[in-house]
Structures are given as C-alpha cells and as structure tokens.
C-alpha cells in the first residue's frame, strides 16, 4: 500500500523577487510503500535535510504535491500540520533528543500526552513497547542516568508509540560510535520487521544505508540515482560506495 507520494516538489529559500534566491530542491518525485525501509543519501548541501523537513511536514514545499493519507500536506495550515505530525509521523533524532527534564517513561508517552490519550491506554502501550525493546527496568530513570543504548531504545519507543504511518530518522547514527550505531540499525531493522513500521532514514553513512531496502541519492536538489538491496549485502554496500564516490560524499 502506498503511504506517501511526492510529485515534483521544489523548495526555494529567499524572496521570490530577490535575485539571490536559493533552490534547495529543484524537483523531486517518489513514493513510499508501507513497510519499506528507505534511505536518503547525499552530500552536505544536496538538499536531503530540506527534503526530510518537508516529509516531516516541518517545512512546506514551494511547489508540487505531497500526498499522504489521501491529503495534500502542502496545503495544510500550521495547526493542521502540527496535528498531522502528531498523528502520522514518528521522529528519531540525532542524539535521540530525549527531554532531560523527564523520565524515560514520560518521554515515551509525550506524543500520546499531547494528543490527550487516556492514562490506561498510555500505560499499556508504554509497557508493551518497553518490554519488547528491553527498557522496562529503567523506565522511571532520567536520560542522563541510563546508557546510550537505553536512550536510543527509549527514543525508538517514543517514535513508535503513536503507531505512525512513517518514522523519520535524521542521521540517527551521526554521533554514535560504531557499536552503538550498529545497535541502533539493528533496532530500526527490528521495528521495521516486527512492527511493519515504514522508515525513512536520512544518512551519509554508507554502512547505515546498507541496512535499507532502497536508497535514494540526492544531488543538487534532484534525485540522482536509486538503488535497491539485493540478496547480497556486500554487493549492495559496494554499489552504494560507488554511487557515493561519484556524488562526493564521505565514505566511512
């Protein structure tokens, strides 16, 4: 089932009349199906962060259509956008971005609390997710009291708890050492498989990208190439490196 479809979206920063306007995205079209784990790659300045912001409906495209759940997201008001984000999208940020003022449990239920979900439903969801991801022991602890891996899993729980149509992960391995990075990627794979979660991950880490089923390469605001994972993971990894060396992104 199709979850999301973007058609010819573009994003221009700066005054339209101003000659010094900057086209972050020229024209991009693609679609995402349910249960897909998609990677978006590109060098710095290629427009991938802008694309992520548009997909996360934090920003609106200047032109083009962005369909999700039968609605054109680009036409929604600010308030509707907030609602849309709350209901349909889960975020996993670089550094996990857990609120240090709250316990892990409070962090996880935050999206539900903002929606006004009942206490019992929240508790049930937190416990089943936390149990599954193995953080039930540390639920009452504050982020700085637990390990990085536990923070990671709490962040994943927070993204999953609303049963979002799509999870957006913005450079999730960016600040991690290779061991924690691998743990996170395994976790994403796990929730992709077990929860049938649709994941869209922006990264410039080739190793991280090799976990995806499909990769979109962006260059100068356009889709430059598209790769699909095959049977052989090594082959896929090599293919990604080939494309990235052409794009000029760093290879880790």
């Amino acid at each position: 089932m199709q979850i999301l479809k973007v058609e010819n979206i573009s994003k221009i920063y700066g005054d339209k009349k101003n000659a010094r306007q900057y086209r972050a995205i020229k024209s991009i079209s693609f679609e995402v199906k349910e249960g897909e784990f998609i990677g978006v790659m590109g060098a710095s300045g290629s427009g991938k962060t802008t694309l992520l912001n548009i997909l996360g409906s934090i920003d609106k495209p200047t032109n083009g259509r962005f369909m999700m759940g039968g609605k054109d997201i680009a036409t929604l008001s600010k308030k509707q956008l907030a609602k849309h984000r709350m209901e349909n999208i889960g975020f996993i940020f670089q550094n996990y971005n857990l609120l240090e003022t709250m316990t892990l449990k409070e962090n996880i239920i935050l999206p539900l609390a903002l929606r006004g979900t009942g206490v019992r439903e929240m508790e049930e969801k937190v416990f089943s997710l936390a149990k599954d991801l193995g953080i039930i022991e540390v639920l009452e602890k504050y982020p700085y009291e637990v390990s990085g891996g536990e923070q990671q899993r709490a962040a994943a729980c927070r993204a999953l708890i609303t049963n979002p149509k799509m999870i957006l992960a913005d450079e999730p391995t960016g600040n991690l050492d290779s061991k924690s990075g691998k743990e996170l990627l395994d976790l994403l794979t796990y929730i992709n498989k077990e929860y049938k979660a649709t994941i869209l991950m922006v990264t410039h880490d080739v190793f991280a990208a090799s976990y995806c089923q499909k990769i979109l390469f962006i260059r100068d605001g356009e889709i430059y190439n598209e790769l699909h994972a095959g049977e052989n993971k090594k082959q896929f990894f090599d293919a990604i490196i080939d494309v990235m060396s052409v794009l000029g992104g760093e290879v880790r």
């Binding site: 934090i58 209901e87 975020f91």
Partner: peptide, 16 residues
C-alpha cells in the same frame, strides 16, 4: 530552547 524545537517536531502546536 532545543526541547521546544523537539516538541514541535513531535506535534506540539502553537496553542499548546
């Protein structure tokens, strides 16, 4: 500051 940034991303609207 950064907390609000994050909260907005997970769907806190201006009124809230």
């Amino acid at each position: 500051q950064h907390q609000y940034k994050m909260l907005r991303k997970i769907g806190m609207d201006a009124h809230t």
